[in-house]
Design a binder for these strands. Structure first.
Lengths: 163, 163
DNA sequence: TATTGTTATACTCTATAACTATA
DNA sequence: TATAGTTATAGAGTATAACAATA
């Protein structure tokens, strides 16, 4: 298939997507760093913001990392004052990881900045363009998830390795 | 501003973008791993694919990492047989990092898979949607770069730190 | 003097395996 | 026996600082 100069080929579009992804992750990493946070610790905080107090196991599943990794992240966030390890009322093996006031303030600020950045990047767009883009990105996400599952098996099935 | 259920708010759009970014980077990391590569080493290889043989300094600038870091990445890629350190004809301090046949084969495959994935994700789209999305992503990249420069100074200016 | 790349050191994120305390 | 979290160990990516060889 041919694409004229003014037309966006699938590869052009893909390249813009990757370029923007890269810019975003760098930009966000800098924002986090300004608050004394790293991307991984911020991600953990964000899950707590959305889920409320949960165990480290739950966090490990949410972030898709090993439980051991969560121990380190929580250690660091306890150290920096963003979270607390509270004893789990029904299970003496587990902790309930809870946002401190400082942690809650940090996630509240993130939520605000997230919305502000979204408005900066996409607020001035014609509603049509925004709708089309949202449709395209959602379709791509679905398609990519399908491809992923086809090639590597469903996420929960990850171990079988059956061809 | 209010957004009806069927309308995409700027935040909705932003969230889909971030979700897709995350899926993509995980998916690509798995592809790379299958070829015995990591994301950082793949990125380096990709620069060589596009630029031809260059010095480690040039690579450091292209990847936006420290020269020290490039030393490690090149060490690993020499070890795995993807690149060679050739003596620089005009500067005995420097090396020209060069793709081996194996490295060139790997980047050729990446280019093919890149185009295939783009076609999978965006090939079946109405041309209008693709054009609108490309426009939106390009605008967002430009806007983000502007914001970044406003807040942190031009990239090349990065050290001054003058308010 | 300035630049290219390396040695030395350190921090973050990640993983697996073995272990302790509980369930 | 299985689960929650930790200790131990390791590899990758990143950084700065001090140093070598060369420009």
């Amino acid at each position: 298939m041919k694409y004229a100069q003014h037309m966006a080929s699938p590869t052009d579009l893909f390249n813009w997507l990757l370029a923007l992804s890269d810019l975003l992750s760098k930009d966000m990493a800098i924002q986090f760093e300004r608050q004394g946070l790293t991307p991984a610790r911020t991600h953990l905080l964000w899950e707590l913001h959305q889920r409320g107090p949960v165990t480290q196991q739950t966090i490990a599943e949410a972030l898709d990392v090993s439980p051991r990794n969560v121990t380190s992240l929580v250690d660091a966030l306890v150290q920096s004052g963003h979270v607390r390890r509270e004893s789990h009322p029904g299970d003496r093996r587990a902790f309930l990881i809870t946002l401190t006031d400082q942690g809650a303030a940090a996630t509240a600020r993130m939520a605000r900045e997230h919305a502000e950045l979204a408005a900066e990047l996409f607020g001035a767009l014609p509603a049509d363009d925004r709708a089309a883009t949202e449709r395209v990105l959602r379709r791509a996400s679905e398609r990519l998830t399908e491809l992923f599952d086809t090639h590597y098996g469903r996420k929960d099935d990850h171990d079988h390795d059956d061809q």
